[in-house]
Amino acid sequence: MRRILRLAALPILALFALTLAGAGPAAAAAHSSAAAASCTGTIQIDSFAFASPVVTAGQLASAKLVATNCTAQPVSATVQAYGRFFGPSGNSLPPGCPVVDPIAMPANFAANGQYTNTFGTLTFAGCTATSYQEYVSFYVGGATVATATATVAIQGGASFSCHVAYTKQSEWQGGFVASISITNTGTLPISYWRLTFTFGGDQRISYVWGATFAQNGNSVTLVNTANNGTIAPGATLTGVGFVGSWQNSDAPPSGFTLNGVSCT
């Protein structure tokens, strides 16, 4: 069964969202007397909702969380988030959809203070789900003190398509430099991209620009940075490349997949 790590669990900047997007710890906002006045319990979730009620498969769905410390003392809590894709068949995982791993992180509140965070999840274009639900829970001392659920509808991603060009800029015995360009050949903008491919040889990447990366054997995953996540329809993204090494073969990669969709 395919699994993915959470793409974002930190405040989303221009986006990236992860990781996976975003940067820096979630901030505990300043004292909010109006929110504190209506607070009950230890922590109260004031709002938790997706930025848009509908997302196109292959795009990023982001949900904003706002919570308040109802006490006059600082509170050290843990917030956990996890999600599930749903289809017409009910509770079974729809074809083409990944299992989304849960994440947990500290959530520190000032006295009567407020906490905000944005959680992003990529809805893969090959996923046949009709909706996605995000669940959040706050824990204090191991006990659950607040929970909430947000739901976003997913519409078909048939208009999502892509083209990837791999260019070997230089090669020498044991090493190489290559670049990658991504063209959005669909009709909708791409707001986040996650590119996977498989090296044809025994290459190992040592340095990347224009993306973050992970490599497992000859399988590589590249994820956009905060500055190059958006690709307009018909536009080509450049400025992504890497330096690597090889021993027996520097055969070009294949199987380029962007956000779950195979690219030409």
Score class of each variant (00 low, 15 high):
residue 94 P to E: 02
residue 82 Y to M: 03
residue 164 V to E: 00
residue 77 A to M: 04
residue 133 Q to L: 13
residue 138 F to P: 00
residue 148 A to P: 05
residue 97 C to Q: 06
residue 118 T to Y: 08
residue 130 T to L: 09
residue 127 C to N: 03
residue 147 T to M: 02
residue 118 T to C: 07
residue 119 F to Y: 14
residue 142 G to R: 08
residue 145 V to M: 00
residue 168 K to E: 10
residue 155 Q to S: 13
residue 116 T to H: 00
residue 133 Q to M: 13
residue 71 T to W: 12
residue 136 V to Y: 05
residue 152 V to Y: 00
residue 83 G to A: 09
residue 162 C to R: 02
residue 110 A to D: 15
residue 129 A to C: 08
residue 74 P to C: 07
residue 92 S to P: 11
residue 88 P to Q: 15
residue 84 R to S: 14
residue 145 V to F: 00
residue 99 V to T: 15
residue 118 T to I: 11
residue 136 V to Q: 00
residue 108 N to G: 08
residue 147 T to W: 02
residue 73 Q to H: 09
residue 108 N to E: 03
residue 118 T to A: 12
residue 84 R to G: 12
residue 88 P to K: 10
residue 123 T to Q: 15
residue 93 L to I: 12
residue 169 Q to C: 01
residue 73 Q to N: 06
residue 143 A to R: 09
residue 100 V to D: 07
residue 145 V to Q: 02
residue 104 A to S: 15
residue 165 A to P: 05
residue 127 C to Y: 03
residue 76 S to M: 10
residue 140 V to N: 12
residue 86 F to C: 06
residue 145 V to S: 00
residue 130 T to Q: 13
residue 108 N to C: 07
residue 84 R to W: 14
residue 107 A to I: 01
residue 143 A to T: 09
residue 125 A to L: 02
residue 154 I to D: 01
residue 109 F to R: 00
residue 125 A to Q: 02
residue 115 Y to R: 09
residue 119 F to M: 03
residue 157 G to Q: 04
residue 95 P to A: 10
residue 73 Q to T: 13
residue 154 I to G: 02
residue 115 Y to P: 04
residue 80 Q to M: 07
residue 90 G to K: 09
residue 112 N to Q: 12
residue 124 F to L: 13
residue 91 N to S: 15
residue 128 T to A: 04
residue 115 Y to W: 11
residue 144 T to C: 03
residue 169 Q to T: 11
residue 119 F to H: 07
residue 164 V to S: 00
residue 136 V to E: 03
residue 140 V to C: 05
residue 154 I to E: 04
residue 132 Y to T: 04
residue 168 K to S: 07
residue 96 G to P: 01
residue 163 H to C: 01
residue 104 A to I: 04
residue 138 F to S: 01
residue 126 G to V: 08
residue 147 T to V: 07
residue 124 F to W: 06
residue 148 A to N: 06
residue 144 T to V: 11
residue 114 Q to F: 03
residue 117 N to R: 00
residue 156 G to P: 12
residue 161 S to W: 06
residue 71 T to M: 03
residue 168 K to W: 05
residue 115 Y to L: 08
residue 71 T to Q: 14
residue 103 I to V: 14
residue 95 P to C: 01
residue 144 T to Q: 03
residue 129 A to H: 06
residue 164 V to M: 02
residue 155 Q to R: 13
residue 158 A to R: 14
residue 167 T to C: 00
residue 143 A to Q: 15
residue 88 P to F: 12
residue 125 A to T: 06
residue 84 R to I: 10
residue 147 T to E: 06
residue 111 A to M: 11
residue 156 G to H: 10
residue 102 P to T: 01
residue 84 R to N: 13
residue 98 P to A: 08
residue 140 V to S: 07
residue 107 A to S: 14
residue 103 I to T: 08
residue 145 V to P: 03
residue 110 A to W: 13
residue 128 T to P: 05
residue 134 E to P: 06
residue 110 A to G: 15
residue 87 G to Q: 04
residue 86 F to H: 11
residue 136 V to A: 08
residue 121 T to N: 15
residue 116 T to V: 03
residue 85 F to C: 10
residue 133 Q to W: 10
residue 91 N to E: 15
residue 154 I to C: 03
residue 107 A to C: 13
